[in-house]
């Protein structure tokens, strides 16, 4: 059992959904980003998505775009992502969330090796599909990392089957057709997507895109195994620093424990 498997076993035993928090490394500085990730965990986040800053974040909305742009301008390097994973994984499981080119550039083998050495559990790769992932799947397997691909409302049953069969750890269900960002309501297509995904896999299904508060987290926790929150954490960190991050994590954490 990997660390993520154990985590999901325990949240399932508690009869609740897991809470996942995303922040990009290097925003507003390396130190502050790591402090905020640790603060998230101390305030109720179950595991962390450590964001690899990338110049062309195609599936991210304005909040995350601005943050990763700032991180890169401040000189953040991919090597620091592994440092951040090391720091965070002392407190909770950590997966990286990274676009494909920085991984390919380092080579899948070396990236996987360094992620494992840092104590990482796996990688979410939003612009990589299983069909293009041969080298990555091999490297992830060798280093016992969970490869996590996404499903979307437009995914056919055939594709849900491929992703369900290929993933380890969990399946990331994008709640809506769109980019990251907070939304007033979480798309009702999310629940249907989770149900369809479950027909093809026994892995936990995590829902991301759009969740920003405890009430939304409770709603999603009613049908998913995990709730992923990104832009709202970035905005909290930007506007209110560590305190705001802690408050948001506590609110969300209460949400995933509430029965909607």
């Amino acid at each position: 059992m990997t660390r993520l498997d154990e985590l999901f076993a325990s949240t399932r035993a508690e009869g609740r959904a897991a809470l996942v928090g995303y922040l990009p490394v290097g925003f507003p500085s390396y130190e502050q980003s790591v402090a905020a990730m640790v603060a998230m965990v101390e305030s109720g986040v179950d595991f962390v998505e450590v964001g690899v800053p990338y110049t062309d974040p195609g599936i991210d909305g304005p909040v995350i775009q601005v943050a990763v742009d700032a991180a890169l301008r401040a000189g953040t390097k991919v090597a620091q992502v592994f440092d951040a994973v090391r720091a965070v994984s002392a407190h909770a499981p950590a997966v990286i969330m990274g676009y494909w080119n920085p991984i390919e550039r380092l080579t899948p083998k070396v990236f996987a090796q360094r992620l494992k050495d840092a104590g990482g559990s796996g990688a979410i790769t939003p612009d990589l599909i299983p069909e293009e992932a041969g080298a990555w799947l091999e490297a992830a397997k060798e280093h016992d990392l969970d490869p996590i691909f996404l499903v979307a409302p437009s995914s056919t049953d055939e594709r849900l089957e491929v992703v369900g069969r290929t993933n380890r750890g969990f399946v990331y269900a994008a709640s809506t057709m769109g980019v990251t960002g907070t939304r007033d309501t979480v798309s009702n297509r999310a629940e249907e997507l989770v149900a369809r995904t479950r027909q093809h896999t026994d892995l936990p299904v995590a829902v991301g895109l759009g969740v920003s508060n405890g009430a939304q987290a409770a709603e999603v926790a009613g049908y998913a195994d995990a709730v992923i929150v990104g832009s709202a954490f970035v905005r909290a960190l930007q506007d209110g620093g560590l305190d705001a991050v802690r408050r948001l994590a506590a609110d969300l954490s209460e949400g995933v424990r509430r029965k909607a």
Binding site: G58, V151, A152, S154, S155, R159, V163, A174, M177
Partner: peptide, 20 residues
């Protein structure tokens, strides 16, 4: 068939676009 010119090309996009 999968859009490759030797090692080049392919599809590196979010899953949401695959159907389209």
């Amino acid at each position: 068939k999968s859009g490759h010119f030797g090692p080049y090309g392919g599809r590196f996009v979010p899953e949401a676009l695959i159907a389209a």
